[in-house]
Amino acid sequence: MGHIELRDIDEDDHDAVFEMMRDREAVAMAAFTADDPDDRAAFDAWLARNLANPTASTHVVTENGGFAGIAAAFSVGDDRELTYWIARNAWGRGVATAALRLLISHETERPLFARVAAHNAASVALLRRAGFTELSRDTGYAPGVGREVEEIVFALLPALE
């Protein structure tokens, strides 16, 4: 693993994010994705909504200065959630672990929630290692796999005093 950082996303990153989020293996792992990962207009509209959201904090994950993924936090009602997507060329080297730790350090609100497809064993393990606790499971339609998928809701709870 190289040097991992989070930086603000800029317009020059949009193509890399789009290409990363079209990777078929990654789409299947994430499961709860865009209906059509190849639809650039839908992607651009989704990204514009997220970047305009005043509660969202969207970052590019870099490894040694190069693009390695995205990580973000946003509000859903009164809850604060986080999400991340790591480019396949950065899988298996601790990039996601480092990026998640950085994001958690920026996001001080607790509880902090995360959702993951139950079949995404790497993400499930990552969240558990980072101190997240499983809260619930539910099943919903996942466009990334074209069928119902179990989703796990995790929370990083406040530290006990």
Rank of each mutant, 00 (worst) to 15 (best):
P111Y: 00
A118F: 12
I86D: 02
D138Y: 04
S105K: 12
L82N: 02
R110N: 03
I104Y: 00
P111G: 03
S123Y: 02
L112F: 00
A117G: 11
L103T: 11
A99C: 11
H119R: 15
T133A: 09
H106P: 04
A142W: 08
L126G: 08
T83S: 15
T139M: 10
G131F: 04
L100H: 02
E107I: 04
L126I: 06
A118K: 14
V95N: 01
E107Q: 14
A90T: 06
R129G: 06
Y141D: 02
A121E: 14
A142H: 11
Y141T: 04
L82K: 05
Y141H: 15
G94H: 11
L100W: 04
W91T: 14
V116W: 06
E109V: 14
L102F: 00
A99E: 14
H106E: 07
N89L: 04
T97H: 05
G140P: 09
T83H: 12
A121N: 03
I86K: 07
R137K: 13
A130H: 02
R101L: 09
A125D: 04
S105T: 11
L100V: 02
W91A: 14
D79G: 00
V124R: 09
L103G: 07
A96R: 07
R115N: 14
V124A: 09
L102Q: 14
E134R: 10
L126T: 10
D79I: 01
F113C: 03
L112D: 06
T108G: 08
D79T: 10
I104E: 08
W85T: 11
N120Q: 04
T139A: 10
L135S: 11
L100M: 06
E81S: 15
N89E: 14
T139I: 14
A87C: 00
D79F: 00
A98E: 15
Y84D: 10
D138W: 10
L126A: 11
A125M: 01
P111L: 03
A142V: 00
L102E: 13
L112H: 01
G131A: 03
P111W: 10
R88Q: 13
G94E: 08
L112Q: 02
R88P: 01
T139L: 05
T108Q: 09
G140M: 14
V116L: 08
G92E: 06
S123W: 01
S123V: 05
R110T: 12
R88H: 13
E81H: 12
G92N: 11
T83E: 13
L112A: 08
R137S: 15
H106G: 14
I104M: 11
L82S: 00
R110W: 08
I86V: 13
R101D: 10
I86Y: 01
A122N: 10
A87W: 00
E107F: 01
R137W: 12
V124L: 08
R101I: 05
A125E: 13
E109G: 05
A118N: 07
L112P: 01
S123Q: 03
H106N: 01
R129M: 00
A96F: 01
A90D: 11
V116Q: 09
A118R: 14
A98G: 04
E81D: 15
R88C: 09
V124W: 09
S105I: 00
D79H: 09
R137Y: 07
L102I: 05
L112I: 13
A142F: 08
A121L: 13
A96D: 04
E81Q: 11
N89I: 06
Y141V: 05
R137V: 12
R137P: 02
F132D: 02
R128Q: 13
